[in-house]
Every structure is written in structure tokens, then in C-alpha cells.
Design a protein around this nucleic acid. Structure first.
Lengths: 242, 242
DNA sequence: CGCCGTGTTGACCAGTTTCAAGATTGGTGG
DNA sequence: CCACCAATCTTGAAACTGGTCAACACGGCG
């Protein structure tokens, strides 16, 4: 079923994205140091098309992954059709790193993606042998936990408009183009809604409101420019009155 | 300010709680094996009273902790007074394990608690030297991630009554007395509300509804018996019609 | 040009919050 | 042991946010 079964054996040496500091839900991953190069030689390159499933919740966790290009969503589906997206992943992110016996979520391609799959046995072995890699992994897990706590605050205590503002800011911090604050929104309104615990209509309405308030500007619906990042941050932080 | 500054140097050999299997937000921690006894000799016993702060978000992370008795809440406070509780901890739980440089949340005592503080340097050293301890830690982090994903689903996609049902079931799995499903609710309605992303009034109303539907029975407001666990689970799982 | 997937907008409605008043509970001191 | 006080919990009524259902707009592509 899942795309993981298409694993080819073409080994690659992917390039890491440029380093950067950012806080928020989608902070860029810290960079592995040179002595972590070992990771780069054991992976298998994999291509997955938009909308396809990489693995399902409950599947045996044979591989961990690093995303090279595009975006992936990690989500849980319920019998009644409700879906919650726990994370969006961007180039450089590792995932399914701590899924011990089986995957605890479903991974689906938001856009066409390229990723590297690492056998978990090899990951574990590398981790046992190499303290630097081990500490790099711990750092990733630590960052992930911090992101998820931020996400809990968003879902538990923010209004619709605040959630959307938080999301756009996090996207901008992570994949926004330098200086001008223009972001390529790879995910649909429904994806955003399922990440933010809203309906797609409410997401759309919140975006329209932000446009009317001149805090953002939409070139197209998937290409948004943040006009007033200060006010957006004040909004996302829930400050009373801007 | 924080109670961590009261660290005494009385070393202890705490007993681990009995083993058990449970799923849900508050699953019991997996048991360290005998060869993890090393952990038990390096900690410092600490007593904190109800309502007191153990450490604040942003504090330098000198220690990791294991809870011996009582309950602790991990939360984030915002300028506007909004609070989100990310986890409740129960006896046997480790916390602040992956806080690398500074704590990413505030820890407060829900009830009078006893805990063991471990210097992070010692934790790191133990982890580097001892693969069994390392794997135990990874397992804890993995379980925590799974719990948090469940929590995200609750906050993002469940109604008030479903959230309260999920919470009571998780409490029961974790600290409910054997067989009869009676739980000692250590936390206030406000704590529950801040965990579930609701107001305390809505929590109270949801509990009243569950009582009216004979799914639960309240001996006192802090002592609740689950009468129909099957129906509660159906409700928490969001099944259409019971 | 028309179709289909996606996004936007409107009107109405349900669930949750807010504000406010009581009821319980637990602790303290007479 | 009881009375009182403070904190916590419950309940009610009104307001509001976000959800639902439905129509329409837009944009890419055959």
C-alpha cells in the first residue's frame, strides 16, 4: 500500500539546507556537524507524489526519514472522518525517528516530495556508536517537543484569527523568502484547518480578515505576503489590543 | 524563587510503581529493568507543596526529575493570563529529560508531591555510558510524543464532552483503582479546563451531563467513579451514536 | 470553452464562553 | 463539635465565536 514499499536502493548524498535560527512551530532543524556525515551514506532516496501516503499509523516502523524537498504532513485519522495534523515537515526535517515498534501517525505528501529513508536498525546502531549523532538526535527530539507544546497552546488557547496568524508566521520563519516575507503555501486550506483545529471555511475567513486589516496580502491563494509582521506577532501572542 | 533551590542532599532509593499496560494520554511509564538501578543512587529527594512552582519556563535546566508521589502539571503561561497545561505527571514519570539548555515549560505541583532531582550532567553521562538506560530514556520520549499527539487530537477535533470523557478515561487508566473505576481527581476544574482547552464552567457542565447520562457518578467533586467505561470510550473515540 | 478542484462568502445555527448568582466543600478557630 | 470563611464547584441566561450548509468565484487544464 504505502510508498515505502517502493524503496529503491539508489544511495545519495543529499545537501543540507542552509543554517538559520528561528523560533515557533516550524523552526529550522539544527545542523548536524561534519562528523555526522555517516548519516548521509546509508540512506535510500525516495520520491512520493502529492497526496500519496508514505506510511500509515500502525505500520511496522522499519524506516526513519529525512525530508529533502517538498512538505509532508503527519496526521491521525479517526473513524468518523475527523483528522488532526500534528506536524508539517519541511526540507531538512527528520521524522519517525522515535517510532519504536510501529508508526504512531500517518505520513502523507503535501506536495511532490523527495526523502531519504534510513533503516531503523542502522539509525539505532549509528546512535549507539556515535555520541555526536546521538546528541544530534536528542536535540531534534527536544526541538520537536517544544514545537508540539507551542502547538498545544495554539489549539487550546487561541482564537481562529490568532491561530492563522501563528501559522503564517511559523511558515514565514521556516520557508519565507528572505526579507520580503513572501511565503509559498504548499498546503490546502483543509490542511491548514486540520492543523489548526478549525474548519476550512473559518481558515479562509480569517485570512480574508487579515487581508482587510492589511496585515497580509495574497498574491494568489497559495502565495501570501506578510505585510506587518510586528502586528501579526502581537496578534499571535494574544496581546490585548495591538 | 523556584522550589528547586531548596534541593537537599538526602539521597534515596525510591520504589518504582507496579508495572501495567495502558494506552491513552496518561499511560504508565515502562519499567526500567534491574540494570537501570544506577539511576536510583544519584538523585536528590525533594518535597514540594500544592501550588508551588518546581521550575519556570526559561529557567536554566540544571536538573531532570522523577515524580515519586502526587501530581505535577507542565504548563505555559501567557502575558494575557491564558494558560495551557501540556501534561499531567504521575508517580513514576520522568520530566524535563530533554530540556537541553533551558526548561521549555513551567512545572507546578498539583498536590503535595515528592520527587527526585537528577543533575542533567549525570543523566547525560549515565546515558552515554549505559545503553540500557539510554534505550529506556528513548522509550520514555517516544511514549511522551505519542501522548502529545493524542492530546493534539483531543484539542483540535473533540467536543467538550468528548474531551472530558477522554480525560477521565486516561486518568482511570493511569491512577484508577483496580476493577471499580474509581478515580481520585487531584486537579481542580480549572486545571482540567486548562489541559483540555476549555473553561472551568464548561468542564463542570460536561461532568454534570455525564452524571445525568449515568456514565459516571461523583462521590465528591474530586472523587469520581466511571460507571460505563464502554460508552465513555465510544464517546471519547467520537463514534457517531453510542 | 467548459469542467473540476479549490477557495471565498453568506445566512443561519449550535456549542462554548462570559458574566453572575448560589451551592458545596474543606479548613480554622471559637 | 460546630460555626464561619474562603475556595471551589455548579448552574443559569445572554452573548459570541466558530461550525454547517449552500451558493458562487476563481484558475488551471483538457
Amino acid at each position: 500500500m504505502s510508498a515505502a514499499s517502493q524503496l529503491s536502493t539508489i544511495s545519495t548524498r543529499p545537501s543540507f539546507p542552509p543554517a538559520s535560527q528561528a523560533i515557533g512551530a516550524f523552526a529550522r532543524p539544527s545542523q548536524p556537524r561534519d562528523d555526522l556525515a555517516a548519516l548521509q551514506s546509508i540512506g535510500t532516496r525516495l520520491r512520493v507524489r502529492r497526496g500519496e501516503t508514505i506510511f500509515n499509523e500502525g505500520d511496522a516502523a522499519e524506516y526513519s526519514y529525512r525530508l529533502v524537498s517538498g512538505s509532508v504532513r503527519l496526521c491521525r485519522h479517526r473513524a468518523n472522518g475527523r483528522r488532526q495534523i500534528a506536524r508539517f515537515l519541511f526540507p531538512g526535517d527528520l521524522f519517525a525517528l522515535a517510532d519504536l515498534s510501529e508508526h504512531s501517525f500517518t505520513a502523507e505528501a503535501v506536495s511532490d516530495v523527495v526523502l531519504i529513508a534510513y533503516r531503523q536498525r542502522q539509525i539505532a546502531q549509528l546512535s549507539d556508536e556515535n555520541p555526536a549523532i546521538r546528541h544530534y538526535f536528542v536535540k531534534q527530539l527536544s526541538r520537536k517537543a517544544s514545537e508540539m507544546q507551542h502547538h498545544l497552546m495554539v489549539l487550546g488557547r487561541q482564537t481562529a484569527k490568532e491561530r492563522v496568524a501563528s501559522f503564517l508566521l511559523a511558515l514565514c520563519d521556516r520557508i519565507g523568502s528572505e526579507e520580503d516575507g513572501v511565503i509559498d503555501v504548499l498546503m490546502s486550506r483543509r490542511d491548514m484547518a486540520d492543523y489548526l483545529g478549525l474548519t476550512l471555511e473559518t481558515v479562509s475567513r480569517s485570512i480574508s480578515e487579515l487581508k482587510r486589516e492589511r496585515l497580509i496580502q495574497a498574491i494568489t491563494s497559495r502565495n501570501i505576503k506578510l505585510l506587518d509582521i510586528e502586528s501579526l506577532r502581537a496578534l499571535a501572542d494574544g496581546d490585548e489590543e495591538i
